[in-house]
Design a protein around this nucleic acid. Structure first.
Length: 493
RNA sequence: GGCCCUAUCGUCUAACGGUUAGGACAUCGGCUUUUCAAGCCGGUAAUCCGGGUUCGAUUCCCGGUAGGGUCACCA
């Protein structure tokens, strides 16, 4: 059973009739991992990208761009048409520049090849021109059909084992509208053959396409590639993934601030598991770790349900795992890409606040996450919902809520005055120095007495991040102003 | 409906035919704490049903049931 895979060539072959969603991104990832795994084992491995745009009506450049952009983001590299280099300008600047990318193959540019095969099939009698009576508007009165041998076909699936179909029920199906316009099955078979594809790795919905394609392979004398049909990804209600549930473009996740490492990790764990024995409980993997581990034997047979909580959890773990150097790169100004792209999605109440600026939002976001007060996804969600607009807009304080528990107002005023005095002396107005400066005083007077009024004065909320983080985000001037305001609100009239 | 695929906690999954059926996410509880979180610790929770084969089935076989896929001059 064990076989040496000296040469593996896989393909990711999307039709540009929709965005690169979670499911198709995972198919691409598995194709990539399998090819790279062969390389890792000492053989050759490559994945080609082939855009299946034979349907001119439904194919759109917009979708092709989205697919390419998504693959680039995730770091899934491909080879394509060697005569055409992919320019950075083709897909914008925000790409992963360290893999040599080529323009994908496009079926719309290969009609001459299909034409050649079609002619040969007709000459050989394995296909024929058929006179039709159009049943619907737009149908031709003449199409090309395959001469079906009407037999049973068994093929081996690397994940599911042998699968048998009786092709009789398929009839003489149409393989081309005319010699110039091949249909899906013909184009796929010809391309896989011409491109030397060794393994077809695609979604489970491709299973029932396989017998048709094998029939065509036999008709043109092509060797059959190996097949691996991976399980589908379903919505929480077990229905097909829809826009609502995550069928949106993978690029949307980037715009929501997800790290590509988290997405790759998540995708890999949907329908595949690296765990093989007790004790291997590792769940965090990057692309480099995934490659040597990837194996069809560990691919699940049944469909998986998309679980956003798990994605979020992975996102939080990945974000927390970045070392300080990596963090600081992200933290610096416009380098904090997730927020920049998130910007358009930030809640209106925040955007319209007088104190709002992208830089401030950027800094606030970084402070909240790096202070450890909130996870990445918490922070993102709070920006989205407008829950933290007090950062940009001075809050209205309720005098009843400023003092800690039963502590009298006048006493609280004294505390606040003293906090102001201490804060005024701080040069480096950051989280830790602020905490250091205030801590002894807070311990002495009771933490609640000091920290609660401060936090409330700064946020106007009963729930918020800790006061030190807030002070850092607001800056010294604004912090002191808000404390002063709390004093005034509290003062007897 | 025909054909095909699939079936372990709510979800993602682990377990050469012999395990107290393991982990992660979610959930619940506790600790910690300056609120909410986060963090740490702990708990609840699964082999779809029925027959075989076997000394012994989550695991192998058959049937049922359920879910999914597919039945275009789309891909």
């Amino acid at each position: 059973m064990p076989q040496k895979l000296h040469k593996v060539k896989t393909r990711f072959a999307p039709s540009p009739t929709g965005f690169l969603h979670i499911g198709s991104a995972r198919t691409a990832l598995f194709n990539y991992l399998f090819a790279k795994n062969a390389e890792h084992l000492g053989g050759e491995g490559e994945m080609i990208l082939r855009i299946e745009d034979t349907d001119k009506e439904r194919s759109k450049k917009e979708y092709e761009d989205d697919i390419i952009e998504g693959l680039l983001w995730l770091g899934i590299g491909w080879t394509g048409d060697p005569s055409k280099k992919l320019q950075k300008k083709d897909i914008g600047d925000e790409i992963n520049g360290d893999i040599a990318y080529q323009q994908p193959y496009r079926q719309s540019e290969r009609t001459d090849i299909y034409k050649k095969y079609l002619a040969k099939m007709i000459a050989d009698g394995t296909a024929y021109v058929s006179k039709e009576e159009p049943a619907e508007a737009g149908q031709r009165s003449e199409v090309i059909r395959l001469k079906n041998q009407n037999k049973k076909i068994t093929f081996h699936d690397e994940i599911r084992g042998d699968i048998t179909f009786d092709t009789t029920e398929l009839g003489d199906f149409v393989i081309a509208k005319d010699p110039e316009t091949p249909l899906y099955h013909l184009a796929v078979v010809v391309d896989d053959f011409e491109m030397g594809i060794t393994h077809v790795i695609r979604g489970e919905d491709g299973i029932s396409n396989t017998p048709r394609q094998i029939l065509i392979q036999e008709a043109i004398g092509a060797k059959s590639p190996k097949y691996a049909h991976i399980p589908l990804i379903l919505a929480p209600d077990k229905s097909k993934l829809s826009k609502r549930h995550g069928a949106m473009s993978i690029n949307e996740y980037r715009k929501f601030g997800y790290e590509k490492e988290a997405m790759v990790n998540f995708l890999a764990l949907m329908g595949w598991s690296p765990q093989s024995e007790e004790g291997t409980e590792k769940e965090i993997y990057d692309m480099e770790e995934l490659i040597p581990l990837f194996d069809f034997k560990k691919v699940q047979k049944s469909a998986a349900i998309f679980n956003k909580d798990k994605l979020d959890s992975l996102q939080n773990k990945w974000f927390a795992s970045f070392n300080p150097e990596e963090r600081s790169v992200k933290e610096k100004g416009t380098e904090f890409i997730p927020l920049n792209e998130m910007q358009e999605k930030i809640h209106e109440s925040i955007k319209s606040a007088s104190g709002y600026s992208l830089k401030k939002a950027n800094d606030a976001f970084a402070s909240l996450v790096y202070s450890g007060g909130y996870t990445y996804t918490d922070t993102r969600d709070k920006f989205m919902s407008g829950e933290i607009d007090y950062i940009f807009r001075e809050p209205t304080l309720d005098p009843q809520k400023i003092a800690w528990k039963e502590t009298p107002r006048d006493k609280t005023i004294e505390y606040i005055k003293h906090i102001e005095k201490i804060l005024a002396t701080i040069e480096q107005f950051y989280n830790t120095p602020i905490k250091t400066a205030l801590w002894d005083y807070a311990e002495k007077e009771g933490r609640g007495n000091i920290l609660w009024p401060m936090r409330y004065a700064l946020s106007g909320q009963e729930k918020s991040p800790d006061p030190f983080t807030l002070a850092e985000i607001l800056g010294k001037e604004e912090t002191l102003r808000r404390l002063k305001n709390a004093e005034i609100v509290l003062a007897p009239h």
